[in-house]
Simulated assay, not measured.
Amino acid sequence: MSEKNERQLRIVGFLCNWCSYGGADTAGVCRFKQPPLLRIIRIPCTGRMDPLFVVKALAQGADGVLVSGCHPKDCHYAVGNFYARRRLELVKRFLPFVGLDPRRFHYTWVSASEGQRWQEVVTEFSAVIQELGPNPGIGADTPMETAGQAASAFA
Rank of each mutant, 00 (worst) to 15 (best):
L95P: 15
G133K: 02
A140H: 09
P72C: 03
G23N: 07
A150Y: 12
I11F: 05
H76W: 04
H71V: 13
P102V: 00
L58M: 08
S126G: 12
R93N: 15
R42E: 10
C16H: 11
N81H: 14
G80D: 03
A27Y: 01
R87A: 14
Q60S: 12
R103A: 13
C75T: 08
K4C: 08
K33C: 07
A59V: 09
P134Q: 11
A62Y: 14
Y83R: 14
V98T: 03
Y107D: 04
G148W: 04
V91W: 06
P72A: 00
D141R: 01
Y77G: 02
R86D: 07
S111I: 05
L15Q: 06
A24T: 00
V122Y: 00
V122S: 01
D101C: 04
E3V: 08
R104I: 10
G115E: 01
L52H: 03
S68C: 15
S113Y: 02
C70R: 06
F82P: 00
I43W: 14
L95I: 13
A27E: 01
M49V: 08
N5Y: 07
G133S: 09
D63C: 11
L95Q: 14
R103W: 00
F154Y: 13
Y21Q: 04
S2L: 07
L15D: 05
S111G: 09
D63G: 09
A59W: 13
E3Y: 04
R87Y: 08
P35G: 10
G148R: 11
L90Y: 10
N5D: 14
I138Y: 09
D74P: 08
P136V: 06
A150K: 11
C45K: 06
E3D: 06
S113C: 00
L132Y: 03
R93E: 15
H76F: 10
P134W: 03
A153T: 11
V122R: 02
Q149S: 12
S152E: 12
G61Q: 09
T142F: 01
N81Q: 15
L38K: 12
A62Q: 13
L15G: 03
P134M: 10
M1P: 12
H106A: 05
R85K: 14
R48Y: 13
L52K: 13
I129L: 09
C19F: 06
F97Q: 05
G47L: 13
T146R: 13
R39Q: 15
E145Q: 05
C19G: 03
E89G: 11
W109M: 06
R86N: 12
L52Q: 11
R86W: 05
I40K: 08
P96N: 03
L9A: 03
H106V: 04
P36W: 08
Q116V: 01
R117Y: 05
V65N: 09
Q116G: 01
Q60P: 00
H106G: 00
K33L: 10
G64C: 12
Q34P: 01
F32R: 03
C75E: 06
N81K: 09
Q116T: 01
F125M: 04
A151N: 05
Q60C: 10
E145L: 07
G28R: 14
Q60D: 12
L90P: 00
A127F: 02
V79P: 00
T108E: 09
Y77K: 02
